[in-house]
Design a protein around this nucleic acid. Structure first.
Length: 604
RNA sequence: GCCGGAGUAGCUUAGCGGCAAAGCAAUCGCUUCGUAAGCGAUAGACCGUGGGUUCGAAUCCCACCUCCGGCUCCA
């Protein structure tokens, strides 16, 4: 039955179109495919079709009619007809006509749904032998044979959204209706429940609950403000990556957040990205912009003096703040912001060093992902993002360089046995890249980390070195991020851990809880000793019951609670409670400190 | 940016033309507690902003701002 679900979903999209056309005979049909977990159909609806009564009312009406249509045991019949006949058939459907024109061959297939002769479930509706087809759609199928294969309780219309015809911003926006569909009612309700559970992991919800970051209308959208707790997490991530990169031979540098617009004109970024750059600030005779990327700044450091082949690979790294004017509708919590900090690096090297450097960069990324317990194939997968040689507007024209770079990236992935897929038209203008695609709480993917091959930057900035033969040669550049944008990575981690961070990342590592006011002084002593050991601690000395203070600390997902009462004072000890594990018994403070410092060290 | 929704106390929400409510948080008492919510009181809201309709607007209409779900985009 499972292999039939695609057919069910696709058939439901036709039934939805049929229902919508009944309600609004003048509606124009776009496309209506099956998708993961359901289906959609795009319509051009008459004005006010939805606004009368609102979206919920509209969905309810369509859904109710769909259920009736399903119960009519409609047959799906496939017919191949000539394009000419199809054009006649769809003369009132401009989008279908457009599709017919574009389809190859002389014939197209259409699916006709028609009501069967005997409606056994509705005996009162009588014979219907000569009624015309209920609905005909241009479609290559496949479909169910009969709507009786569809469980009317196992689907549900979910939402209405705008979607551009053929996915292009230049085209008209149609109204898309989404539905969920499964084979059984239980699968549907299980899915809905699962979604509700997943929403609790949403980093925006947890960010508020755990007091990690906020947004302020007057600061501006897409510009997060981190609280003390959120900043603690950031700081740990930043320390981790800077220390690790320095160990691995990167030169960590600091360059300004803005630059003359000329810098980005020279780099070639400007014409490609000017719409997503902040506009020019004119000061005296200078025209400055907030930088949307760091590469050209780093190139200037390389160019500060003549370079020898002995200095290569020249790995410049920075925790670089970047500013991009993303469209307002594209902003999402910390995952997509207008000001972010990229763990960025540009590796300037010889062409024949590229393969090794790409491998090293991927190794660093994987080691970092390992620390976060992110698993290849589960939490993330690799995407080989390719260009399009036919599109010389979007991609720098140099077919040989593209082939060379693509082959290196593909070879690296193959030799690693990495699970990867290839994606056309996802490259940067200056070269192909390997993107590490991470899943978020709702199952959608975002690029978390990236390794890119660049053969354009060196030409534009004359990034050369003196080779062993004394001749000047052109270098190539590997752009890479290690832990990506700190903001986006935090979003992933909040969702991954559901706010229960490992000890080393926890904003508060230890909560000290005196049982009553009598024990407050002892608690303060303990706090001081913990702080002397660079631990992040808090004191819960409110006049509340022990149970309540524990509950609050647990809800804040604090890894360790120290409970202090008469027993602990007389034993000069602390009682430890580990997150989610309950009472873990008494131990001397020194032993506890030693234990958790080890745990922090190991980043577990 | 576009399509569709939503904005009520610090947070989560109820109210949907006729006196702005509740729980949690906060503050103050009582309680001094042994491993996930002790009891009571007090305070807290220009109902996102600005216009309009109406005898009367949190509620209806318009514009703007912000957020959410999609579309587009993501160097």
């Amino acid at each position: 039955m499972a292999e039939n679900i695609e057919n069910i979903r696709h058939s439901l999209s036709h039934i939805m179109a049929q229902a919508v056309l009944e309600l609004h005979p003048k509606a124009k049909l776009g496309m209506g495919p099956a998708i993961e977990n359901g289906f959609y159909y795009d319509f051009l609806l008459p004005a006010q079709a939805i606004s009368e009564g609102g979206q919920d009312e509209f969905i309810k009406k369509v859904e109710a009619r769909m259920k009736e249509l399903i119960l009519q045991d409609q047959k799906f019949i496939k017919k191949d007809i000539t394009k000419l006949a199809a054009k006649k058939l769809f003369k009132d459907q401009p989008y279908k006509l457009e599709l017919i024109k574009e389809l190859p061959g002389k014939n197209v297939s259409v699916y006709i749904t028609t009501i069967v002769l005997k409606d056994v479930r509705h005996p009162t509706s009588g014979g219907m032998s000569d009624i015309p087809p209920a609905f005909t759609d241009l479609c290559k199928g496949p479909h169910v044979k009969n709507t009786s294969e569809i469980n009317p309780k196992a689907f549900k219309l979910t939402r209405i959204a705008g979607a551009y015809w053929k996915s292009s911003e230049k085209n008209k926006m149609l109204t898309r209706i989404y539905g969920l569909a499964f084979t059984t009612e239980k699968e549907l309700s299980d899915y809905v429940k699962m979604q509700e559970e997943a929403e609790k992991r949403d980093h925006r919800v947890l960010g508020k609950k755990l007091d990690l970051f906020i947004f302020s209308d007057i600061v501006g959208k897409g510009l997060p403000l981190y609280t003390e707790k959120g900043t603690a997490i950031r700081r740990e991530l930043e320390r981790l990556i800077v220390d690790e990169e320095i160990k691995r031979g990167y030169k960590h540098v600091c360059t300004p957040d803005l630059a003359k617009v000329d810098l980005f004109k020279k780099s070639g970024h400007y014409p490609y990205y000017k719409d997503t750059m902040y506009p020019v600030m004119k000061v005296d005779e200078e025209e400055l912009i907030l930088r949307p990327m760091t590469c050209p700044h780093h190139y200037q450091l390389y160019l500060a003096k003549p370079r020898s082949y002995r200095e290569l690979p020249f790995r410049i790294a920075e925790l670089a703040k970047q500013y991009r004017y993303e469209k307002s509708g594209e902003l999402t919590g910390l995952a997509r912001v207008r000001c972010f900090c990229l763990a960025d690096s540009h590796i300037i090297c010889q062409k024949d060093q590229a393969e090794k450097e790409i491998n090293l960069a991927l190794k660093l990324i994987e080691d970092m992902a390992g620390i976060f317990e992110l698993k290849s194939g589960v939490d993330y997968r690799y995407r080989l993002s390719l260009g399009d040689k036919r599109d010389s507007k979007k991609y720098y024209k140099d077919d040989r360089a593209w082939d060379f770079a693509e082959n290196i990236l593909r070879k690296v992935l193959k030799e690693k046995n990495a699970p990867f897929f290839e994606a056309e038209n996802e490259a940067a203008f200056y070269g192909p890249k390997i993107d590490i695609q991470m899943k978020n709480f709702s199952g959608k993917e975002d690029t978390a980390f990236t390794v890119q091959y660049d053969f354009v930057g060196p030409k534009r900035f004359n990034l050369v070195y003196t080779d062993s033969d004394g001749k000047e040669k052109e270098a190539i550049v590997i752009h890479r991020s290690s832990i990506g944008a700190v903001e986006r990575t935090m979003a992933f981690l909040i969702e991954k851990y559901e706010g229960a961070f490992p000890l080393w990342l926890s904003p508060i590592q230890v909560s000290v809880i005196p049982i009553s006011e009598k024990h407050a002084d002892y608690a303060k002593e303990i706090i001081k000793k913990l702080k002397d050991n660079n631990l992040r601690v808090e004191l819960r000395d409110e006049n509340e019951t022990l149970g309540k203070k524990i509950r609050e600390a647990e809800m804040q997902k604090i890894p360790y609670l120290l409970i202090l009462g008469d027993k602990e004072i007389s034993a000069s000890a602390v009682s430890v409670r580990a997150r989610g594990k309950g009472d873990d018994g008494q131990m001397p403070l020194e032993k506890f400190i030693e234990k958790i410092k080890k745990e922090i060290q190991e980043k577990k």
